[in-house]
Amino acid sequence: MLCLLVATAIALIAVRGLLASIMLTSVYGLLSASFFVTMDAVDVAFTEAAVGAGVSPLLLLLTVAIVGRREAASNARRLVVPLLLVTVTGALLIIGTLDMPSFGSPDAPAQTHVAPRYLQQSGDEIGIPNVVTSVLASYRAYDTLGEVLVIFTAGVAVLLALAPAGQGGSARAEPPAPEHLAPHTILQVVSKLLIPFMLLFAFYVQFHGEYGPGGGFQAGVIFASGIILYGLLYGLPTVCRVIPPPVVEVLAAVGALIYGLTGVLSLLAGKNFLDYSALAADPVTGQHIGIIAIELGVGIAVAAVIITIYYAFAGRLHTRED
């Protein structure tokens, strides 16, 4: 697996065409996902498969559709300094790993610090089977709040950078796209069959996150990929009619707000920020309610931000074609 990863990375460097390197990025994402599965990190693998192999190559493809598929010829002399910098940084990173305890060693800090408490007591304190979710959503809720805000900020930044001047948001594609090619009939029929199941699966991942691998991040990405697939096959105006861009932009903020408000609610109930035991009479029930609420917030925020970014990119493509 590692050999395949390294081979893909080298091919990624060697290949010149941007299209081919995007495909290799996707392959790399899929390989990392299977690598995470063999390391028993199924939740991470889920995210990596959805983001690394699915959504991010798609956004890169949209970018290439805008800027063209050829890499600009680079000056060989100017490459020396970056190469030196990368080599030094890489060497430092490798030296850094030498000090790390070997994988799975029982006296590693990861195994002795807080992990035993999470593993042994989360069943009593949080009461859900998937420890990853309880760590992510309850013990480490601050970190996850930070991640959601990072994603939200990324969405806002993409809007600021890509939205044409004079427009309020990502995509306001009013005129229907010129149909210069025959419609993708077979693709449309098959995707019509599959997209409902994709969205259903996203909801399953969202609300099953406490019991199995999954949660808001994965569900949001899967939901967004379903919508993006629809947009790719039926055109931007159609998907903008189904889910209007202003709604998505508001939803991105609403998702982040749900998360923050859950924290404020527990604050108002007299406990710490994001301490969900305050949300119900029984602390464990409170934890359940809190986790479901913030996972919902995460899911809405992630899905909305990814769809917003897609709208922004695709809207750029549209305005360029006209």
């Binding site: 993708h184 077979i186 693709l187 098959v190 069959l193 599959l194």
Partner: peptide
Amino acid sequence: FVLFSSPTASHALAK
């Protein structure tokens, strides 16, 4: 899923 997606993907590539 494979029976649906795989032929469709081939078709999309060929088209």
